[in-house]
Design a protein around this nucleic acid. Structure first.
Length: 719
DNA sequence: GTGCGAGTATGA
DNA sequence: CATACTCGCACC
């Protein structure tokens, strides 16, 4: 920092700064052009989340372009940052340090990306630095060099979106006008409920690719996001089929650093304008963006697990607005968040004709209605209702049968044999689970093995499995259908496709392989297990998973059948009562369910009809947080309550005699973590989020000793 | 977070 | 009066 540039240029006041900042360094090596750089420094402190000014040594004048990665001295350490602007004069009164190094002159933080990341940080009360880390992949110098040497590719001729796109969207009356407006450079926004189709010319990946192709043909770019890489594979293939190679790139977490950065650079440099990828692809710096689209809004993989936890829905929604792009959210089901967009007039519904849905959707049967007393020994041994067993047996004559099981692993969840209460850890009251067939049960929260179980309610000492998991089911079902090949797909080994020949495919939700020309039948097991999850979205999530599996099944017109097992209707008295997710599946009417669910959320003042913010910490931390919080009017406080109260259906028994000191804290279970929820009506949401952001800055500036977690739009602990 | 200066405590 | 330490705040 011995640079003389630093002393020279702290001069006249700032009136002309804005005009001067617009000039670009023209003559290489000219030292006096915009010698001040505004730098967003990655200092992990909330109250320092703003640009700082540095002097630009003349040797770096041409390299330190807006968007470049740099290294700067900050508070005695070398930190990474991005140049976000250059100017002739500093606004900062004191002396400036010099940029230490330009890591790469590649302008990775484009103005559009900066605007997007700033808006996302604001929306989630997070820091810009955190969002930039999600948006910009780590630099890979070799990829940068290799791509530079390769040079920009010749723009290949784009095939005009022809009959194939029209065909993929033919089943949707609103499709033609959406595509027309998209092609014309407008910004339509739609919630697309895909009709199930096992016809590759009309399936959802082809339709999505067609929408992207339409944006490209209109001279604009497209960003497509899918929850996982298998969905990305399908859309990737559909894009290649439609556009040929070279017009799109893929950006997904399963790529290596070099492949990922190469693909990202191709987008940044404008070599391609179409991206298909997993959630981080929502930030891909596509030029002239014309379309943002994502698939399966309800999949929790679209929620970023790192701070500030932005959801693809919000990122792409903000982005469509900032860049005037069309927006398309697709799925076999519709989330309440998307249904809200429709009622607010932000989204237009795009659905198939009822007659097409009826033909293309499988027939849905609810096991337990009517013939439940009839028992088959083979069905019994497979733990299947006989209706399901017979459906599978019949279907195996003509193709593969999918069996969806809601939980992974072997006997995953345990309860008391005598009173059926969920078995809980003696240390922290987390749920007990069997990881292996032979090992002792283990707490899923703190990992403590449980050697001698004693039920706090009935003093029973025996455990039973509450839900039969995937591996167990595969063994049982395999025995029930001797001679039929059995495939499993789930955590660890996920299959993407299975052949059209008869086989049994046991899969956990989200891991169902696609069967060429569709499954002949699909069994959905343990419906209760999904429905009774004590989370806000249990019904929505159950229906989403059922529809996703059912959509891989042949249409009713060609004998496709889905059997829902272990659902509420298996208790025949309950079948009279409407269980909305079950009814929505049977009628294949996700729109009805979403509307109904949204209305219920509205009546109960639950998200997405209100804005929630969550504070998590010790009792002292929350007390202090409330002192520092400057809440606008209209925000209500709920709690503080123990964080896991929703999941801990069992009351917490008193600590064993001998005092709390004998119970050693294990993991996070030892410290008492409470949550305080802040709730605001949607119009007051920005005020709530601003208050949370200010609290975060204060907490950091005051060096509060206790940790405090702040989260806007929490997903856990709000059941 | 780190570095530093002001202010305060401690001891020869 | 010199040195050791804490506290508070700026960090460009």
């Amino acid at each position: 920092m011995t640079d003389d540039a630093m002393t020279d240029d702290v001069g006249p006041k700032v009136a002309l700064v804005r005009a001067a900042a617009r000039r670009r360094p023209v003559a290489p090596g000219t030292p006096d052009v915009d010698p001040v750089a505004r730098v967003v420094v990655d200092v992990g402190l909330a109250h320092l989340d703003r640009p700082f000014e540095y002097s630009v040594p003349s040797a770096l004048a041409d390299l330190a372009v807006p968007g470049a990665r740099v290294r700067v001295r900050f508070a005695g350490q070398d930190l990474d940052g991005f140049v976000v602007g250059r100017s002739a004069v500093a606004e900062h009164e004191g002396p400036l340090s010099a940029l230490r190094r330009v890591v790469s002159p590649e302008a990775v933080l484009t103005p559009a990306l900066l605007a997007l990341c700033t808006a996302v940080a604001e929306r989630y009360a997070g820091s810009l630095g955190d969002v930039l880390r999600l948006a910009i992949p780590p630099r890979h110098a070799r990829a940068e060099r290799a791509l530079t040497q390769a040079g920009a590719p010749d723009p290949k001729a784009l095939p005009a979106p022809g009959a194939s796109v029209a065909q993929a969207w033919a089943g949707y009356p609103a499709g033609a006008s959406f595509l027309r407006r998209l092609a014309a450079g407008e910004a339509p926004a739609a919630s697309w409920l895909a009709a199930p189709s096992v016809d590759p010319a009309r399936d959802w990946p082809t339709a999505l690719a067609g929408a992207a192709g339409t944006a490209l043909a209109g001279g604009r770019g497209a960003v497509l996001v899918c929850p996982d890489h298998r969905d990305v594979d399908r859309v990737d293939a559909a894009l290649t089929a439609l556009l040929g190679p070279g017009h799109h790139v893929r950006l997904s977490a399963d790529q290596g650093p070099q492949a990922r950065y190469t693909a990202w650079l191709k987008v940044l440099r404008g070599h391609v304008r179409c991206v298909i990828g997993t959630r981080a692809a929502a930030f891909a710096p596509v030029h002239d963006l014309g379309l943002v689209a994502w698939w399966d809004d309800g999949d929790d993989l679209l929620g970023e697990p790192r701070a500030p936890y932005p959801h693809v829905r919000e990122v792409l929604g903000i982005r469509a607005r900032l860049e005037s792009a069309a927006l398309l959210v697709g799925g076999f089901s519709r989330t309440t968040a998307t249904a809200l967009g429709i009622t607010q007039g932000r989204l237009r519904p795009m659905v198939a004709r009822p007659v097409d849905v009826r033909r293309q959707a499988p027939r849905v049967l609810i096991a337990g209605e009517g013939s439940e007393l009839e028992r088959d020994p083979a069905a019994l041994s497979a733990h299947l209702p006989s209706l399901a067993w017979r459906a599978a047996r019949d279907a195996l004559g003509s193709g593969p049968v999918l069996v969806q099981v809601p939980r992974r692993g072997y006997l995953p969840s345990l309860s008391c044999q005598s009173c059926r209460a969920p078995a809980r850890c003696a240390v922290c009251h987390g749920p007990l689970a069997l990881a292996d067939r032979d090992a002792a049960p283990v707490c899923r929260w703190c990992g403590t093995p449980c050697r001698d179980f004693e039920c706090p309610h009935c003093e029973g000492r025996t455990l039973r499995s509450a839900v039969v998991g995937a591996r167990r089911t595969a063994e049982d079902i395999g025995r029930a259908f001797p001679g039929v090949p059995v495939h499993t797909s789930g955590a660890g080994s996920v299959l993407s496709v299975v052949a059209a020949t008869p086989s049994l495919v046991i899969a956990t939700p989200g891991a169902e392989p696609v069967a060429a020309s569709g499954y002949a039948a699909t069994l959905l097991l343990d419906a209760w297990a999904l429905l009774e999850r004590p989370t806000l979205d249990a019904g929505e999530e159950a229906l989403r998973r059922w529809l996703a599996a059912a959509a891989l099944t042949r249409g009713a017109a060609v004998g496709g059948v889905v059997v829902l097992c272990g659902g509420p209707s298996q208790v025949s008295q309950v079948s009279q009562v409407s269980v909305p997710p079950v009814e929505a599946l049977a009628r294949w009417d996700p729109a009805w369910f979403a509307d109904r669910e949204l209305q219920e959320r509205g009546e109960l003042e639950l998200p997405p009809t209100v804005r929630l913010a969550q504070l998590v910490g010790s009792r002292q931390a929350l007390r202090r947080a409330r002192e520092l919080l400057d809440l606008p009017s209209g925000v209500s406080e709920l709690g503080p309550l123990p964080l896991h109260s929703a999941r801990a259906a069992v009351p917490v028994p008193p600590p064993s005699p001998g005092g709390p000191s004998t119970v050693s804290p294990v993991g996070s279970c030892g410290t008492e973590r409470l949550q305080l929820l802040l709730r605001a009506a949607l119009p007051d949401g920005p005020g709530l989020v601003r208050a949370v952001r200010e609290l975060r800055a204060l907490w950091s500036a005051r060096k509060e000793p206790e940790p405090l977690l702040l989260r806007v739009d929490p997903t856990e602990g709000i059941g």
